[in-house]
Design a binder for these strands. Structure first.
Lengths: 108, 108
DNA sequence: TCAACACCTCAAGAGATATTGAAATATGGA
DNA sequence: TCCATATTTCAATATCTCTTGAGGTGTTGA
């Protein structure tokens, strides 16, 4: 992953509404959710949701698919993983103390 | 880690100069580096460096210590690790595909 | 065809953040 | 004491970013 790409993804998730959207969609799994449902889940208006969802999509963290009236968004786990990998490897040089923190149920 | 704290840390590193400063300081290890040296390493003026270093410090990602004329900054690995842990655990629910990406030399 | 629905786009305004250069503080050495 | 060094602070400006509300597109079903 390129630095520029990582910066775009980081700014995308450094906003409350968007971080919550991402969390919601990761929890949702492969089914994803419609724009309306996501907006409702995180408590944001339709135009605001659209704005934030497209920011996340532009950052590559979500994929979207039109299904008749609705637009279904899904978290792109590959992209989220690549961002974390960038932080761990490129930014932190794979430092053991950092890697350790990414293990489930044992950290910090 | 609280959501608010994570958001602060994420915005802190979602800026090129600051991401580079963090990377430089993680690489530097426990010795840290002076404000001037960091600024030189990432190519930013003295007032700009000061501004960004204090943003990173406020976000809890760096610690600083005055040594006579200089101020030595160090990366706080605990804090960086806690941020990554927050992303992996709280945001991604410890999803295996995400955790896997944080392992050294095997991913994405 | 029409109304309701789901979503997106746009423009305006507010607010936050970054950059610059100048000036302030504080330390160390001649 | 005086000057150079290291860093921070400040004000002005520029630049993003977020929010809101109005309006647009396309789809579904009566």
């Amino acid at each position: 992953m390129e630095e520029m790409q990582a910066l775009t993804a980081l700014s995308a998730i450094s906003e409350q509404t968007r971080l919550r959207m991402l969390r919601f969609l990761v929890a949702r799994g492969p089914d994803g959710a419609s724009a309306g449902e996501i907006g409702q889940a995180v408590g944001s208006s339709s135009s605001r949701s659209s704005f934030h969802l497209s920011a996340l999509t532009r950052a590559g963290l979500l994929s979207s698919e039109k299904q008749s009236r609705q637009v279904i968004y899904r978290a792109d786990l590959q992209a989220v993983g690549a961002l974390l990998n960038y932080l761990v490897e490129d930014c932190c040089g794979g430092h053991p103390r950092i890697v350790e923190c990414c293990q489930p149920k044992n950290c910090c």
